[in-house]
Design a protein around this nucleic acid. Sequence first.
DNA 1: TATTTAATATGATGTTTATCATATATTATA
DNA 2: TATAATATATGATAAACATCATATTAAATA
Lengths: 205, 205
Amino acid sequence: MINIILNNEAVTMPYTKDHKNKTREKILESSFKLFALKGFEGVTVNELMKNCGLTRGAFYAHFSSKAELYSESLKFAASGTKLASFKPEDIPSKKWLALLLDEYLSLEHVRGEHTITCPLAFLATDINMQDDEIKSAYSDVYYGMNSTIMKYATSYTDCDQHDILSVTTMIIGAVAIARTLPDQESIMALLTACRREAGLKLGGI
Amino acid sequence: MINIILNNEAVTMPYTKDHKNKTREKILESSFKLFALKGFEGVTVNELMKNCGLTRGAFYAHFSSKAELYSESLKFAASGTKLASFKPEDIPSKKWLALLLDEYLSLEHVRGEHTITCPLAFLATDINMQDDEIKSAYSDVYYGMNSTIMKYATSYTDCDQHDILSVTTMIIGAVAIARTLPDQESIMALLTACRREAGLKLGGI
DNA sequence: TATTTAATATGATGTTTATCATATATTATA
DNA sequence: TATAATATATGATAAACATCATATTAAATA
C-alpha cells in the first residue's frame, strides 16, 4: 500500500507505520513501573524488556542507552498521570482538585497499584544519582504539576504560588515516605494527615 | 597494660580497646555522605573505603556486607543530626524549633554541605530498593524525628500529631525535591515557601 | 507466493564489582 | 626489642551487566 521511493527504487515496508511507536510506548510504560519500583540501578535492561514480552536484543532499536530509556519513561509517566490528562470542561476545578488529592494520597498509589504512579514521589532521590538531563526532566514534571494545580486553584480561592509549592512538596513527600512505612495503619495515618492539610490549604476541599 | 586471660594463657592486645570503634565510626560517617550523594548502587565498596583513607581489604573486618554498612550508616547519620543531639535545657523549645527549620530548609543542607545531612531527605526513595531491615531503620528515624518535634512543639502550642506529620513530610519533601532543581533561585523559592508554611504550622515561628 | 527489509532474538565481549583468600603492617605487652 | 595478635592491604575470582555483532523472524507488497 505504502511505497517510499528511495534512490529511484521502490522499497517495501514490512511493518505498518506505527508498529514501532506502539512497541516503544509499551516499553516506556512497563519500564517506568519497574524503574519506579526498583530504581535505575536496581533493574537490568534484560528485565525491562522481558517485562513487556521482548528481549534485550530489541532494545537498542528503540533507545540508545538505558539512561535514555529512564529519561523518556519519566516523561511518559508524567504525561500519563491524571494530572496531565485533566480536561477543564469535564468537572469544576474545585471538585477535580479534591479528587486529585484523594487519588494521589491513596493507599493504592503508595502501593504502586495505579496504572501510572507519580514519578515525582517514586523517584525523588533516585533522580539525583543521574545526569543533568534526567534531573531536568524531573523538575519540568514538578513545575508542570505546580502550574496545573495553581491554574485551577486560583479559579475559586486566593492561594498564591508559595501555597501551591508547599502543598505539592507535602503530597509528594507523603507518598515517598509512606512507601517506606511498615504497615497499612502507619501509611494511612500519614496520608490522612496530609490529605486534611492539603485540603485546607487549597481552599477547604 | 591490659591483659585478658583466655584458655589460661595471657594474650597481648596489639591495638587499644576502641581503635576499631574509632575506625568503624570514621567509615560510617564518610560512607553516609557518599551514599546520600550517590545512592546505594551508585557507589562501590572500594570508593567508600578510599573515601576515608582505607582500602577495601579492611572493610570486611568491620561489616559483613555493603548492605549492612548502608543500614548502619543510616542509623549513624540519624543519631548525628542536630535533631538527635538536641539538649532541651540549652534553649527554649520554640526558639530551637525555629533554628531547626532554618537549618533544615537551608541551601547548605540541600547542597550536602552540612557535616551531616538528613537521611530522610537524601535517601527517601533509595530506601525502597533495599530490604526490609533498611526500610525499618528509615522509618524508625522518621518517627524519631516526629516525636522529638512533637515533644517540643506541644510545650508552647496546641498542634496535634497530624500537624507534625504534615510538617515533617513537607520539609523532608522540600529538601528532596530542592536537590533536583536546576538553579539556586528555584531552590530558594521552594525552601522559603516551605519555611513559612512550617513556621505557621508550628505555632508561628 | 517470493522478496525485501524492519523488528526482534541470540550469542559474545569487556568491564565492573562484591566478596574471599592471603599477605603485610602495626602496636600493646613481655 | 621480640612476640603475638589485630588491623589493614593486595591479589584473585566469579557473577552480573550494558552494549555490540550477527542471526532469525515476520509482515507488506509485487
